[in-house]
Design a protein around this nucleic acid. Structure first.
Lengths: 162, 162
DNA sequence: GGGAATTGCGCAATGA
DNA sequence: ATCATTGCGCAATTCC
């Protein structure tokens, strides 16, 4: 898929002290280059409390050393960063899709309601017609069925879609 | 304009383990919360050269002041962190609302379609009745009017449901 | 100019 | 062990 070889310039590889990793990732997706010098602060890791003398704490010792300089560490970070980016992209897209879905549903809703209105009207007309006819029948026998029946376009099923 | 009640300012330190702060300056009274998590960064103090006068050159030199130790800096950061949190919260909530809206709309959609179905059926029944009656009339009384009324399926409500 | 809001990103913890 | 998800802080940018 979208996987570009990202350069990794870990400057100050073995500089004496602090790590200013001004990693200019230069992601491909980054357009509008305004030369963004990003800079994440280095975090000093507390290797061990200086004065303390805990020799062997409980046997649960996992987070002993996170070699920031380790190659593997950087590798893992990079992978995670990629994963994070991907995940966020997907999340964003999903939200967008949802929003679009809302719009579509709203549209369809309107359509359906319009149709309901139409059908209701038709129904009402037909019912009136029946009533009228029934009255006519009750009054006498048959006055004029045709006239009663077709006043205009009662039965028009103008079903215009959309 | 802040319209939202400030949440508890205590930084709720629950995991901040790996970062310790090597704060050079002991700030004054840290009101409300003593937020931890500071890092030391090599700060290149690049004050405006020349000494004395301000005379800021019209160039693009704006990174003149970034004192990480500054009280104002920390203050700004904290405010921004709060703002970020708020913004993200809102964003999340909005997404959630949108999702819920989708559900509601879907539900209503179903309801509407059901109603359409019902109305269509009613209409169809009524029309059939109508036709039948017309036939009766045609049989018994005048063929002329009956013929005018019912050629075949005059009132075909071709209700296509999506 | 200035503060809040938004956005992109990296880090670390955690879930699956 | 690898990837995905998530909370959080930083910094740049944008919006009042």
């Amino acid at each position: 898929m979208s996987k570009q070889p990202q350069q990794k310039l870990t400057s100050t590889d073995q500089n004496g002290v602090s790590v200013i990793q001004s990693q200019a990732h230069s992601s491909a997706a980054n357009s509008a280059g305004a030369t963004a010098g990003l800079q994440q602060v280095p975090q000093l890791v507390a290797v061990s409390p200086g004065g303390g003398g805990k020799a062997t704490p409980p046997s649960k010792m996992k987070k002993t050393l996170l070699d920031k300089d380790s190659e593997e560490y950087r590798q893992r970070r990079e992978r995670n960063n990629l994963a994070v980016k991907k995940s966020r992209m997907r999340s964003k897209q999903k939200a967008q899709d949802t929003q679009q879905r809302v719009n579509e549903l709203k549209e369809e809703n309107e359509r359906l309601e319009a149709k309901i209105k139409l059908l209701s009207k038709e129904l009402s007309v037909l019912k009136d017609l029946f009533l009228e006819h029934a009255h006519n029948l009750a009054d006498n026998v048959q006055p004029a069925s045709a006239a009663t029946v077709a006043p205009g376009d009662l039965c028009n099923t103008n079903n215009n879609s959309q």
